[in-house]
Design a protein around this nucleic acid. Structure first.
Lengths: 153, 153
DNA sequence: TTTACTGCAAATATTTTGCAATATC
DNA sequence: GATATTGCAAAATATTTGCAGTAAA
């Protein structure tokens, strides 16, 4: 995840906290930074460990509270993969992600046609800034594994 | 959710079960039908209730087993919303979400041009199933609040 | 100084598992 | 008839909550 996205995400969080009379606690920003330091999906335990590594351990309650906030702001997404619940930083500048729903591997794509439609669309009572698009499916590697499994039987 | 999607989803499930030597139990199809009868997100409890309503109650274990299967097949998706974990039929469900990064409010949109580009795109070594697109920005209400605050200072 | 937020620990909710009974193929 | 799948209940995980103490504004 690029530093640029992290900084913008922090700005979004700060804005939200300010407008909503919430406090800019170090915990919230530490969690956001930890979240954005992962390259891809992570579990709550991974996140907890990462914060310990960074000498900023937080309580389970705070972790869940903050993650809920970040999810509300769409700075983080959460979905069930084969391994269980996984989280992921999801703020980015106009990118499409190809996500394999079997192995969870993600590939960044720049799809001109999508960017083009985005640039030209008008949304009522809404100032659009940027987008992220997630394209879910199965990569050829996993497809092959699945096919092999089927044939075995 | 359209009946057409339901029928296709049932076909996908049946195919999978057949190819993988799994059994076409009435529970599996009853759960799939119940899932596709919801217009939008539902909780496990909602699903359980729906099945009781339809005189086809199933055990928790079966419910989870089947839901995991449906998620693996990408016939159902599962994500954490403000209210907790929620599930949703997702076959051919390609949505865009407009997210206000100040108040966190989200609005679901169906943007034909995006769906169209998606349908016609080809991705190398990847079988695309469906997508989610998040459009970030500021809603008119928050825009107004921010403007007022700036003027105050 | 006020009160939103944190940590802790207990409570609750959610999901998985082991095993006997059942039903599909 | 063989065995995949179900239901049940208990176990394991994951998440929320209540409350006293702490720190941001």
């Amino acid at each position: 995840m690029k530093t640029n996205s992290t900084e913008t995400a922090k700005q979004i969080l700060a804005n939200y906290l300010e407008v909503n009379n919430c406090r800019k606690t170090p915990e919230r920003f530490a969690i956001l930074e930890a979240v954005y330091s992962f390259g891809s999906y992570f579990s709550m335990q991974d996140l907890k460990n990462k914060l310990v590594e960074r000498n900023f351990p937080v309580s389970t309650a705070t972790l869940y509270n903050t993650m809920r906030l970040l999810m509300d702001l769409r700075l983080v997404l959460c979905q069930r993969l084969q391994q269980g619940m996984r989280y992921k930083a999801c703020y980015a500048d106009n990118r499409c992600y190809q996500v394999c729903t079997v192995c969870g591997k993600t590939k960044e794509l720049k799809i001109a046609d999508i960017v083009n439609v985005f640039d030209n669309m008008h949304l009522k009572r809404f100032r659009k800034d940027n987008f992220s698009m997630y394209i879910y499916g199965i990569c050829s590697t996993c497809q092959a594994v699945l096919t092999r499994q089927k044939n075995k039987k």
